[in-house]
Amino acid sequence: MAKVLVVTSGKGGVGKTTTTAALGAALAQSGQRVVLVDFDVGLRNLDLVLGAERRVVFDFINVIQGVAKLSQAVIRDKRIDTLALLPASQTRDKDALTEEGVARVIADLRRMCDWVICDSPAGIERGAILAMRHADAAIIVTNPEVSSVRDSDRIIGLLDAKTVKAEKGERIEKHLLIARYDAARAARGEMLNVEDILEILSIPLLGIIPESDEVLRASNIGCPVTLSEATGVTARAYADAARRLNGEEIEMIVPSDKKGLLVKLFGRRAA
């Protein structure tokens, strides 16, 4: 039986889709079977980030409405054969997702693979609630700024109230992923630092992804960043996060501003 993960945030543009693709690819590379589900009906992007946009025939809504079978809608990745995508519909809106339909599709996917990763839309409305509904664990993606952190806090509250697990009185596993972390700006106090964010949200930290051009380049060529620039800092941070999801204990590296550190060292020596 697969573990169902939801990648969620409340706020838009924080890196949910990038994270879904990167973590999915990293988990699949280790040989586990992974299906990524795009819940952002009407504003789908995951197909682009995976470079699968020209191979979409049927989508999530078609499966829910019984127009297509799940096996027809799921697209296998060309680079990693254990990675697959269930795309969202771009022509419909989130009302086309039904409670029973989502429950059925997730239950079917659970039998097919090791990880089901649901890419949640932004917001706290129907689409986001349905994306988290059947999750066993959640990855809350947050950026080091107050609005993003507050929205993440709101989402954590909803995870504890609106998921099937929460309604059964069980606790949903929660992981914090800090994305777009700019070490130089954090050092200058222009962004919240890691300790502040952890103090406010008080959930365990899964990883810190530095702000980097690698993410932009990866989505432009339609490839998860963990594959396109496998030796880059972003890919390494996601790969570590994926290993932590698998239960490995890996030391957390807070991205630091190396230039800033050198300047500090020299500065100290001069003084």
Binding site: D151, I156, G157, I200, S202
Partner: peptide
Amino acid sequence: RSGQSVVFLGGDVTVIGSIAS
């Protein structure tokens, strides 16, 4: 958490943790 409202008119409330923005 943000967006939650806890109402207890029967007496004192003790929170082990924070009240979010």
